[in-house]
Computed example of a mutant assay.
Amino acid sequence: MSFTPLILAGGRSSRMGSPKHLLSTPDGRPLYQHQIDLLPQVCPYAPTIYISLAQDSQLDDYLRTLPSVTDASPDPDPVLCKTPHIRKVTPPAITIIHDLDANTSSVTSAGPAAGLLAAHRADPARTWLVIACDYPLLTQRALERLCAKYRPPVTCFRNADGFCEPLLGVWGPDGLAELERRVKGSSASAGGRGGEESGRLR
């Protein structure tokens, strides 16, 4: 089964005081760059890695150069190579998916769910490997285990306190359709709803 990589980086970062996707790691790179480097190792056949941003997200010089799904439609599902242990050499394209609504208010914003739903609306049939940008210690092995354990509609990790981490998970079409229904009904964020989904990685 193929997964489409999605980095969530469009939050308001009100607790951080500055856009967290642009915070620097010890080697000087922004947080989102770690995921861009990591995801091709986990999804070597994915032609594109998508970054979800709010309409008003602050951009660095690199992000300003990227196309968005308003410029081009999402790529078709990749054709997986049937020969094991052979990975494509061509690096994936990086494309931005913007939230549909401005992320200027905690009252009107759907929070992290906005990025998930923007991706779902861009292509409702896809299954997305979703990673929030603020996991700088995330490893290839952890993501490969997550993908291997995927069971629809959504599979995610539990943290040390036993709570689900829906912003580090695999979301199928049915899970995202249900999330959209709940957000429309309650304006709740994905972070507050993940524990109610089935198919979790324990």
Rank of each mutant, 00 (worst) to 15 (best):
S189L: 01
P84C: 09
D60E: 03
T65Q: 13
S189D: 13
Y62I: 11
L138N: 13
K88V: 14
R193S: 01
P67R: 03
D101V: 10
N103W: 02
N103D: 14
L168F: 10
S105A: 05
V107P: 03
P40I: 01
S106Q: 14
T155E: 02
S187W: 09
D56Q: 13
Y50E: 01
G175N: 09
G192S: 07
P40L: 03
P30H: 02
D77A: 12
Y150E: 09
P30D: 09
V154I: 06
A46L: 08
E196C: 03
T108W: 06
P44L: 02
Q35Y: 00
R193T: 01
T95D: 11
L167E: 03
A132W: 08
P166G: 09
L201W: 10
H120I: 12
P153G: 03
P136T: 08
S187C: 12
G162L: 09
A118N: 03
S189I: 06
I36K: 02
A142G: 03
D60S: 06
G172V: 08
A122M: 02
L23R: 11
A160P: 00
L167Y: 09
W171G: 02
A72H: 00
L22N: 06
R202T: 14
G172L: 11
V89M: 06
P92V: 07
G162M: 12
P124D: 00
S2A: 08
V183R: 15
A9D: 13
I86R: 04
P30S: 03
D161I: 09
M16V: 14
D27T: 07
P5H: 06
V154G: 08
V69W: 08
A46W: 04
G175E: 02
P76T: 05
A72T: 11
R64M: 10
I86Y: 06
L53G: 01
E144L: 15
P76N: 06
T127S: 14
P84H: 05
D71S: 10
L100N: 09
T70C: 05
A110P: 02
R181T: 15
A9E: 14
A142K: 04
G191D: 14
A93K: 15
H120E: 01
L59W: 03
R29Y: 02
P44I: 00
G11R: 04
H98Q: 06
G175I: 01
R202K: 13
A177N: 09
Y150C: 05
V130P: 04
R200I: 10
Y135H: 15
E197G: 01
D71M: 08
S73F: 05
D134V: 07
L23G: 00
D99A: 12
D27I: 09
A188M: 11
Y150Q: 01
L146H: 03
L137H: 15
A177P: 02
A125H: 12
T108H: 14
D161R: 10
P44V: 00
L100D: 05
L8P: 11
I36S: 00
T4M: 14
